[in-house]
């Protein structure tokens, strides 16, 4: 019971906090696509794959007092960041070990910008297609972001890197 909630708390705890709702959404999606067992259902939205279920779960975790949400006024928008509370740490004490490789993936994802993770997650959303079609679809759904060829190549290398750290 509340196992899926515990997984999210564990994720944020392993990340030592996450800044940005979008970033958290994309990190969990990428982890899910790397076969880590997250159950949240994702659909394609403005910023790429987005899970309403995850949004709801994070809200509940804040209400439960397991996650702390801080808001920062960035002028034209609010930025949200999440940290695990003491209560949250107690909640996940008996959750068991995280899957091997997840910690390494989280560290690597956290270093990246939201824009880059948006790029990676959108490419992963189309990963059932050949590479050229993945890129073509990216340009259609993200036409206003103007991702460069170099960024796209970096994104594919990053996916390889993540797959590599899971295989280790």
């Amino acid at each position: 019971m509340l196992r899926e909630h515990a997984k999210i708390v564990q994720f944020v705890s392993m990340a030592n906090g996450v800044t940005g709702r979008k970033k958290l959404q994309k990190m969990i999606y990428i982890a899910k696509k790397m076969d880590f067992p997250f159950q949240e259902k994702y659909e394609l939205h403005i910023y790429g794959p987005y899970s309403e279920e995850l949004t709801l779960r994070v809200e509940e975790l804040c209400e439960m007092g397991f996650l702390d949400e801080a808001q920062e006024d960035k002028g034209s928008y609010m930025q949200y960041s999440y940290e695990v509370t003491e209560e949250g740490s107690r909640f996940i004490r008996d959750t068991g070990d995280a899957p091997s490789g997840l910690g390494d993936c989280i560290v690597r994802m956290k270093e990246k910008s939201s824009r880059f993770l948006e790029l990676v997650s959108t490419l992963l959303y189309f990963d059932h297609l050949p590479k050229e079609e993945q890129i073509a679809n990216l340009h259609i759904v993200k036409n206003k972001l103007n991702f460069s060829e170099a960024e796209i190549e970096d994104a594919f290398s990053f996916m390889e890197e993540l797959s590599g750290c899971i295989r280790q």
Binding site: H45, Y47, L56, Y77
Partner: peptide, 16 residues
């Protein structure tokens, strides 16, 4: 859970 209507403005983190 339901969100009856949502909006976003450039730079914000909403998704609709």
């Amino acid at each position: 859970s339901d969100l009856p209507y949502d909006f976003y403005r450039p730079g914000e983190e909403e998704e609709r």
